[in-house]
Design a binder for these strands. Structure first.
Lengths: 205, 205
DNA sequence: GTCTATAAGAAGATAGAC
DNA sequence: GTCTATCTTCTTATAGAC
């Protein structure tokens, strides 16, 4: 990995652990294996490093959103897939979504950084809301709505049904971020949650 | 309010907005209406102010827990109340829990501070987990379990039912902390969530 | 591009007068 | 208890050699 990229990588790790103000340029440089003044040949300031991280993560998440069809543009194209979901497919959907966001290295570190800096930086608060509130509800709402249209889920309020599916996932994600030792129990809880969701909203009926 | 207490109060406000490292002793002093050196007559360091906030909030939450019976010791004593809950009582329970924690000045500021500092301070992460993960599930689980025992809710997994009740409340709380402009919509969503919870778990059956 | 040396300034904390 | 003045340390950033 080239130095310029490695700086972003190590900076993100440190920012996600301590927040922006608690990380010193010398800390980042040390992790990269250079001295602080050398770092200024790559980025003109500490703030420029931070901004570059935001830019890169935004790009990364756009790609991720396209891969997951979060934008919804191709949602109807996948309709057939979800209409024919097997009984356990919804369980897999929740589990994969959870594990991907929990363990993916960039998501994990960036989410922690967003969490720490959200009240200090409106831009980051907006990114957080987009990534972990609006996008998941839009994406999962589209999928669950299609499944409901196919008669496999029963509700007169898709938005709340989607909240009932997603809120426990969000809750468990933040719990595990805060205390990774709870991950094993969280995965068990996640499975039970989705099984009960299936029972409640009628997949097994 | 005496100066020593006012220092804690203003410091908590600043810490909750910016995090520990971003707040300067001079900022706290200015809000209190004194100069920084005077502040050192009341607390020997910036860290001592922070520690005093933790101590005071711990005391405050113990009192709060007793008032709410979160410790569960008197849960059975309230059994009769919850067994005879009116149809809308559960809705009120959720709404009041939500609004109390969202708006109560100490809860609000302390929760934001915990959010910001959770990855930098294991003690704060543990307090967060206790206040917003373990205590609510214990407390609400005890209540919902009693209502279920009375035959007013139907489930074979009280723990997951409680998660289905609480996770959306937790989700909406963090959403509103991040963006207070979403509060009005969140309250509407909360009502719909609890109504649907009632329908799902059988209060209206 | 990396280094050593260092400037420039910010922030925590103290001394001592009132 | 509060102030002004100041010390000390830490941190960002730059200068200039290699």
């Amino acid at each position: 990995m080239d130095t310029k990229q490695k700086i972003l990588d190590e900076a993100l790790t440190l920012f996600s652990e301590k927040g922006y103000a608690n990380v010193y340029v010398a800390d980042i440089a040390e992790r990269v294996g250079i001295k602080a003044p050398s770092l200024y040949k790559h980025y003109k300031s500490k703030q420029a490093i931070f901004d570059a991280i935001i830019d890169e993560m935004n790009k990364r998440f756009e790609q991720q959103a396209q891969a997951l069809n979060i934008n919804g543009s191709d949602a109807t194209a996948d309709s057939e897939i979800y209409k024919n979901m097997s009984e356990d497919a919804l369980l897999e959907l929740g589990r994969q979504f959870f594990l991907y966001f929990l363990h993916d290295d960039y998501n994990k570190r960036f989410r922690k950084m967003l969490t720490i800096e959200q009240f200090n930086n409106k831009q980051l608060a907006d990114i957080y809301t987009k990534l972990y509130v609006d996008d998941p509800l839009t994406y999962q709402g589209a999928l669950l709505g299609m499944v409901a249209s196919a008669g496999l889920l029963h509700t007169d309020n898709v938005e709340i049904m989607t909240l009932h599916f997603y809120a426990p996932i969000y809750y468990l994600l933040t719990v595990c971020d805060r205390d990774p030792a709870r991950e094993k129990k969280a995965l068990k809880t996640l499975d039970e949650h989705i099984k009960q969701f299936n029972r409640i909203y009628g997949r097994n009926k």
